[in-house]
Amino acid sequence: MTQASFFPFGPIKSVIGKCIYLPGNDIDTDRIIPARFLKCVNFEALGNQVFMDDRKEIDNLHPFDNDNNKNASILIVDKNFGCGSSREHAPQALMRWGIRAIIGQSFAEIFYGNCLSIGIPCVTMSEPNIKSLIYKVNTFKQLLFNIDIQSKKIIAEEDSWPLKIEKESRKMLTSGAWDATSILINGKEKINITMKKIPYLNSFII
């Protein structure tokens, strides 16, 4: 397991690190973290358990066991990554392994939101661009990539690729508002006003 430095904190304008590519469409959260590891009351042990069954069952070396990928913090995936169960254990396991950002062709919705709420940006790229990025990653194994969320680019040396990120997510990440709790609590007065007009909270008499 890569030693995770600090967990995400404050505004996230860019993520710089080595990339690790995990091929395959529709990789579900049961594969990211098998259900038996959900028997826990905190997330601490999850980093070592990420992709446990896939790593065990694979014929060759799993990317997460390849020494070349040690210390990688940017995960590159294909389509519909993170589908299936809503378990936040999945992004938590990836984060505790050392992942700080994910690049993919597409993501499942709940997984995407779970990542955002713990400060892990999920950015998307077109298929040709992602292929060219993967080519670069495979050719220069120790190269550092910079996911610049502000300018919506991935930069490595003189190369750069455009990335896509939802407007709202970009704002939340770069402003530090991805940790939504305090912002939501600040709306208490407005919450109370909303509650007054919802029929089922008021004996259906409005």
């Binding site: 809503s86 378990r87 936040e88 254990h89 992004p91 938590q92 709940i110 939101g113 779970n114 709420s117 713990i118 940790d179 939504a180 709790t181 939501l184």
Partner: peptide, 9 residues
């Protein structure tokens, strides 16, 4: 469905 951070929210 929501994740654990959202459960907290």
């Amino acid at each position: 469905g929501i994740g654990t951070s959202q459960v907290r929210d």
